[in-house]
Design a binder for these strands. Structure first.
Lengths: 217, 217
DNA sequence: GTAGATTTCTGCAATAGATGCAAAAATGCA
DNA sequence: TGCATTTTTGCATCTATTGCAGAAATCTAC
């Protein structure tokens, strides 16, 4: 509250906090990668970061959260980008861009431990669930954005649109990661999914075919 | 209630197990409703069901799971229905019916504690995450069903379709519950969402309008 | 009905995540 | 430097969860 004269002066206290937070996150990810998630205790992480175990919890509310430390930072960036209005773009375009942004961010290999995070999230049900939760938050942001972009849209339309977009993209992303798709193939798959999101399941020829004959062709 | 000792004789052991499982679930839900989730310990539940605390874990892998005991049973039924082929129906119809089935099951007020379960799931992040997980499993079942119904469909198409359908429906359901929609309104909303799933976001007029009337409110 | 095999229940101990609290240490400021 | 504020820490505690081994209940064959 005090001095705001020189805009950016982190101050020792603040700088130290960030360093500690980062140290905890880095140590945690490294240990998770080395010994595995379950096999790493809070005590281990704290020790590796040179703080008391108790301190861990003043930086992260739970062991799971530390996995998302970096991811969250990325998502914050995306949220900003999402907020920037792009005039001349149709709302649909904006949503499309937002979703792709978010998901590509999640798929991208970030730092040295980016891969570990994704692997952990896909493997540990608890972490996977946590990730889902984040996605839900994002979904709601997109819904809100839709309302901003076109106040005319109905409540349900906005909710459904956000859910459809995020749900479809998420499914494809997870599928691609699990199947070991390379980035290019993933991108292609995402585009296909996006097309379905925009044109509806009705646009999938196979789905509108009369009835499934027992034979193939 | 009558006993025909022909083919199916549950046997005392089996009957007792079911009774215990049910007692645990019922006691748990009752206590959750009375004192709240966090405020109820495993010991409390076990005591109320007249078994040792240790026994709780031989029936449910975790405290969270007991909330889904009943829900899971319902979902199993739905899974069966989902498996039943309905000849002469278009795959799209089948998916549509499946999703609606699943979700209406979840929205329906089951037993005396049905409301409590839904409230808990919506409130406790942990439980909500757990619910998401179940939904993911269902999503995968739908995807598998799609492959069965039309072997011609592409991998990505199936994944995306399942994700879109479930994602869209889930978003609307949650929204309706949170906003306190009555069953009828919820049903209407679901239908609207379903239409969007089938026809795509492109079918929402407001979304394809040129650009947000810049500045205007 | 009883003995022996099988399954379930229970008590006990231990691990680990999470939280509240108050003293100790670090940092900011006059 | 000395006081105010913030962070860190140690400690106690609670609770979920798991492994283990003996006790109790149920089932099967005789």
């Amino acid at each position: 509250m005090r001095d705001m004269h020189h805009a950016e002066e982190p101050g020792l206290r603040e700088r130290k906090k960030r360093r500690t937070r980062s140290a905890l996150a880095t140590a945690a990810l490294r240990l998770f990668a080395e010994r595995g998630y379950e096999e790493t205790t809070i005590a281990d992480i704290a020790a590796a970061a040179d703080v008391s175990p108790r301190t861990f919890f003043s930086y992260f509310p739970s062991k799971e959260d530390v996995v998302f430390a970096e991811v969250d930072d990325r998502l914050d960036e995306v949220a900003e980008r999402l907020a920037r209005r792009v005039p001349g773009e149709t709302p649909l375009e904006t949503v499309r861009q937002s979703v792709v942004d978010v998901l590509e961010t999640l798929v991208a290999e970030h730092g040295a431990y980016g891969t570990v995070q994704v692997r952990l999230i896909l493997e540990r049900p608890g972490l996977r669930a946590r990730a889902m939760q984040r996605l839900t938050e994002i979904q709601d942001e997109i819904r809100a954005r839709l309302h901003e972009l076109c106040p005319d849209i109905g409540e349900i339309e906005a909710v459904a649109a956000a859910g459809i977009a995020v749900g479809g993209m998420q499914a494809v992303i997870v599928h691609c990661r699990e199947q070991g798709y390379d980035p290019l193939s993933t991108r292609t798959a995402l585009d296909r999914a996006l097309a379905i999101v925009e044109n509806g399941l009705g646009s999938i020829a196979a789905l509108t075919a009369p009835a499934p004959p027992a034979g193939g062709r």
